[in-house]
Simulated scan of single mutants.
Amino acid sequence: MEKQRFVDKIALVTGGANGLGRGMVDQLVKEGAQVAVFDIEDDTMEEAFAHNDRVCCLHCDVRDYDQVQKGVRDVIERYGRIDVLMNNAGIIHRQGFLECSKEGWLDVMDTNLNGVFYVGQAVARTMVDLGVEGHIVNTCSNTSRKTVAGVTPYGPSKAGVKMLTQIMALELAKYGIHVNAVAPGTSRTRIAAGTINDPERSAAFLAKMPFGRYGEVREMVSVALFLASEDASFITGETIYEEGGFSLP
């Protein structure tokens, strides 16, 4: 029987049209939540959720401060509050340090770090104003502690998310708001398709994995939703590494 941890809860998922974000949306709905989705892939959102009356799709680019403010206001106007934020939107640019362009660096930082700050702050303000003792889960990455070559902006952006999570947790605890992060390794999503679909790269990567396989979306979602639920009622400021032991020495 499906757990029902989010009955009568209002959740917001950023980057919810694909991959890990879409898995979060699907599971939140299964567990009773009403879910708002922020994404810039309107057609993908429409295809995924158009016929689900428990999901509200909103075009929102998390890199744009003003769009975020409007998007959060729209969710509050529709549902009255936000109980759970899955602050998940993120991108990766595969550029080495010497080749990394200014545009590539800024795009990753704007999405992965600034976006988490913009959405996290906007939603936290509504929680404080409305007296909601909510849960915020930021999507980090194992590259926040494991050095990986060839994706120069990504690791620093996710290390920033880890520290921002701790700052948010410390400052929001007095309002009863929990803030944690989930840090997945390489899961079977579109963002990892370049590695997964290249036999040579895939074999080299899997040779470094203690379990010898990629993570599944459901495995990351399980950790993320645990942190978003009352099951994690005495956990805040933590980053949980869901990476199959990849960072082990």
Rank of each mutant, 00 (worst) to 15 (best):
F6M: 10
D8S: 15
K9M: 11
A11K: 06
V13K: 01
A17Y: 03
L20I: 15
G21H: 03
V25D: 00
D26E: 15
G32R: 02
G32Y: 07
Q34R: 08
V35H: 08
I40K: 09
D43L: 13
E46K: 06
A48W: 08
A48G: 05
F49P: 04
F49N: 03
D53A: 01
V55Y: 01
H59K: 08
D61R: 04
D61Q: 02
R63P: 10
R63W: 00
Q67S: 12
Q67C: 10
K70S: 11
D74N: 08
I76A: 09
E77R: 09
V84C: 01
M86I: 15
M86Y: 02
N87W: 03
G90E: 09
G90A: 13
H93P: 01
H93Q: 12
G96V: 11
G96W: 03
F97V: 15
S101G: 06
S101E: 05
K102R: 14
E103T: 11
G104V: 08
W105D: 03
L106A: 07
N112W: 01
F117D: 03
F117Y: 12
V119G: 10
Q121Y: 07
V123N: 09
A124Q: 09
V128G: 09
D129N: 10
G131W: 03
E133C: 14
H135I: 01
N138F: 12
N138Y: 08
T143V: 14
T147Y: 01
T147S: 09
G150A: 10
V151Y: 00
P153N: 09
P153V: 05
G155C: 08
G155N: 04
P156Q: 12
S157H: 04
G160M: 06
K162D: 14
M163Y: 11
A169Y: 07
L172N: 08
A173C: 04
A173L: 05
K174D: 00
A181T: 07
P184A: 01
G185A: 07
T186P: 11
T186R: 01
R188S: 10
I191A: 11
D198V: 12
E200M: 02
L206T: 11
P210T: 10
V217P: 06
E219S: 02
A228T: 13
D231N: 14
D231F: 12
A232V: 11
F234T: 12
T236G: 07
Y241E: 13
E242P: 08
F246R: 12
F246N: 06
S247K: 00
S247V: 07
P249L: 09
